[in-house]
Each structure stands twice: as structure tokens, then as C-alpha cells.
Design a binder for these strands. Structure first.
Lengths: 250, 250
DNA sequence: CTTGCCGTTTGACGCAGGTCAATCTGAACA
DNA sequence: TGTTCAGATTGACCTGCGTCAAACGGCAAG
């Protein structure tokens, strides 16, 4: 790699690191330090970052695009654990014990990821205890997400789950101004993320359309009145307070 | 408290700490250090350790008994996140951000818990980076558990979930020797842990009894042939490899 | 333009598990 | 010995979602 392209990629790397919640409170010096051993990588749809069982070499931060972390059920079907997007890190849980990645990670939308090698990062942690705390915070984030997923599943009702998913991608705070949401992934992938089959998603969207809660065409969903949708959610006492849909316990 | 009882409780505390997976690799000196500010506490069935929304004062380690960590759904129903037993710690995820406990914790079987106050432990972490790594490992454990719970839910089939639950409490490795399992909690609580209603649990147990997979009377479940049960599990391709039922990703 | 593929939509159907309600069991206590 | 009450069981019913199958739309390669 030429010195020039190296410099360019380094700048991009720094900006990518800065975009990651886990590192957002770090100063330039620390980021520079991490950038020394991290690397920015372009990923295309369908490309695997790692496969279940592979020895863990490090963890990732999504800079753009979307990564589907999933397992394969014994019947051969894909079971999505979570789809990671801009700013989200994944597989940090593999840092402590190097016992192999416990799932597959496959790109479902073109983008860039930062790769952070395990050994070097562990060394850094040893001399930067505050960074460990950030890591802990990040992992508790993930725990929260998962607990919410559990909530969503037991509190069943696909309409509710879809409504929550949509409201999460509306500009916050929620207003009554129409919002147009471009899906960044296929509806089949979205179905996977909601842990339902695509037929069910299709029907649910149709149903919500007839209720005039949303409009949809292709990969675009229009919400005429997000606040109204939120009210509908609360009104039918379908969801727990989805403002604080982000909570969990160890 | 007298000097004597203090000494006794201190010894009990140390032994309790030693029994916790999170601390198992620590030496006596470190444990002693933690014991200085941790405290052992007796809890009775029905007693709450904390409630959702309360400011986080620290986290817990179950020494004996069982603690049900759960939320209350808007319809007023209890939704179990996880039941923590001997050696398991919970609410460590609240360490980084002191934003209040995100769930309720209620004792469902008499026992003892260790309470580890937040501020003091954070101070300790700052000067003991290796302890941070242990914390990270512990949290990734929890992540694994949750991911498995997700797996179990989507891979539905209550019979499977119950069978896995039972096999997990058989002496490892699984043999063909009969095992008798005493439930440490009510069947209603167990139903909550499996995320089903107690009627369904009742029916499922009945069904497995007619299949001669188990016998049951009151709070005791007898498994004539655990290996056979495991085979039945694998045979019907019901579960993912439940040996490695312990895996996950960030 | 045709062909094929992939993702989506729609219909018909089945079933596991939730719900409601009634009954049963057993431990604690008077 | 009876009373009480929480938990467990059992039955009847309902429904949301998975499943199977067929058809449709759009896009890329030939």
C-alpha cells in the first residue's frame, strides 16, 4: 500500500472509530492509538466477516451498511440474532475467551467495517482501565438490546414489533410530521430481524396499511403521523413504554 | 454487630465470593479486598432485592436460593428475564451507567446473596484492569444465556425447552443412570423461566410422562434415562447441539 | 424480447400454545 | 378434624403465526 493511500485510509479509519459509540468519549490520542492496529475494510453484500466456530481474531465496528449476525438452525434455516448498523460494534463478547466465534456474520448491505484485532486491543485494555469500563458499558448495551428482543418476543404481536421497529428509525423526538423510511435491507432480512417469516411480515404491512397507520411501496415506508402511530401503540397497551425500550439487567 | 459474628459473616462472605464464577480465578488477597466492602445478606422468598427504576447501588451474586429478575408488562403480568442461582451474578450491567435498575429482582427461594456496592467496586476496577476483563467475561456469559433463550423461543416447542432445562440440571456428563431433580422453585415460576404459562407447563409434563421420558410427583422429577432423553432431543432434531447450548455473539 | 432468478405477495390450512374457567391437591393452621 | 388458600391440573375453546403452494414483479444476462 502506498504512503498516500495509507494516509487516506488512516483518516477514514479515525473517522470510523469516532463514529462508534463505544469510543465516542475517547480523545484523539486514544483513537490514534487504536487506529494503529485497527483496520478499515470494505464489505459487499453476501460477504462473510466470520463464520461460527472460526477462531476469534478480533471484533468489529460497523461504519456503514448492515451486518447480519446469525446462526444456522439444525433444519438449515438462518436465525438472526441481530442486525448491526452504523456505529454498532459486535463480537466484543469474544474478547475475553478466545473460544471461537459463536455465530456467523454476513454483510446484508454494502458498507465498511472496522476490524479491531484481539491481542492488541487486550494489551491496550490492560494499560487503559477506563477503556475497559467503556467496553463494559457497550456490552451492557447489547444485553439491553437482547432483553428487549426477549420482551418483544414474549409480548408477541407482530404488529407491535413492526411499529416499534419503524418508530425507532423516525427522527427523535417523534412528531406528527410525515416520515419516509427507506429500508436498507430486503424485507426478508427485516422479517428475520423481527424473528418472523416474510409471509407474515408481508401480511402485517398490508394490515397496517389498511389501518392507515402506514403507506408502503417497494422498499419505502411512509408514516403519515408517527406520533399517531406511537399513540396507537400505547393506546392498545401493546408495548411497554417504548421510549425506554432500552433497558435491561445483568 | 459483635466482633465474633462479624468474623463469622466475613468467613461466609469469602466463601460466597469464592463460589462466584466471576471471581473464581482471583486469589485470596483480591477476594479479601472485595470482602472489605461487600456484604452477605439473607433473603427470604418474596423479598425484593431491588425494583425497576430504583437508583443502582451495586450488583449481586447469588450464593444460594434463587432470584427472579423480571419486568412487569403493561397488562400487569410478570415477565421473567432470568432466574439466577448459585454462583451467578446479576445486575453487573448497571455498573457503568448509574441510570437505575432496569428490572425487578425478587427472591423466589430462600437463600443468601452477596451485595457488591457500585462505587467501591468501580474504584477497585480502576486499579485492577484484569478484574475488568473478568467482568467482561461474565457479561459475555450473560449475553450467551440470553442469546440461547432467544434461540429457544424461536425454535419454539415447549417440550424441547423443558427437556433442555432438565438435562442442564443432570450431573454432567449425561449418563443413563436415573436422576432425581428437586425443583427449587414453584412450577409457576419454572413456567415463567421457560416463558410459558403454567397450564402449558402442566400439560407438557403430563405429555412427557405419557411418553415415559420422565416421571414426576409434586416438586420432584425423575429421569429414568437421561441419556435416552438427550437422544430423544437430538433424534427429533429439536434442539441445536445443546452441549454447546452456551454460545453467543456481541 | 425472453429467460431465469430473487424477492414479494396472497390464499388456504393446521396447530402449538394462550385464555378462561372449573376442579383438585396439599400444606399450614386453628 | 375442618378451613383456607396458593398452587397444580384438566378441559374446552380461540387465534396468531408458521407452512405449503401458487403467482407476480422487477432486474440482469443472454
Amino acid at each position: 500500500m502506498s504512503a498516500l493511500s495509507s494516509a487516506i485510509s488512516s483518516a477514514a479509519l479515525l473517522s470510523a472509530l469516532r463514529g462508534c459509540r463505544m469510543f465516542e468519549s475517547l480523545g484523539s490520542a486514544e483513537l490514534q492509538r487504536i487506529a494503529e492496529f485497527a483496520s478499515l475494510r470494505r464489505v459487499g453484500r453476501g460477504e462473510f466477516l466470520f463464520r461460527e466456530g472460526e477462531p476469534t481474531s478480533g471484533f468489529f465496528v460497523t461504519h456503514s451498511g448492515a451486518i447480519n449476525v446469525h446462526r444456522i438452525a439444525p433444519d438449515g434455516r438462518e436465525k438472526t440474532i441481530h442486525i448491526f448498523r452504523k456505529g454498532e460494534s459486535f463480537a466484543e463478547a469474544t474478547l475475553p475467551d478466545g473460544s471461537g466465534y459463536p455465530a456467523h456474520a454476513c454483510c446484508v448491505e454494502d458498507g465498511h467495517v472496522v476490524f479491531i484485532p484481539r491481542a492488541e486491543f487486550l494489551d491496550l485494555l490492560k494499560i487503559r482501565p477506563d477503556l475497559s469500563l467503556r467496553m463494559l458499558a457497550s456490552m451492557s448495551q447489547h444485553l439491553r438490546v437482547l432483553v428487549n428482543a426477549l420482551d418483544d418476543l414474549t409480548q408477541k404481536d407482530v404488529e407491535t414489533r413492526l411499529a416499534i421497529w419503524l418508530l425507532k428509525r423516525c427522527p427523535q423526538p417523534i412528531t406528527s410530521d410525515p416520515v419516509e423510511i427507506k429500508l436498507d435491507i430486503t424485507k426478508t432480512m427485516l422479517a428475520g430481524e423481527l424473528r418472523i417469516r416474510n409471509e407474515t411480515l408481508s401480511r402485517t404491512i398490508a394490515k397496517m396499511r389498511t389501518l392507515s397507520l402506514i403507506e408502503s411501496k417497494g422498499r419505502t415506508v411512509r408514516i403519515q403521523d408517527p406520533l399517531g402511530l406511537a399513540d396507537w401503540l400505547a393506546g392498545t397497551s401493546r408495548a411497554t413504554n417504548h421510549q425506554e425500550q432500552v433497558r435491561m439487567i445483568g
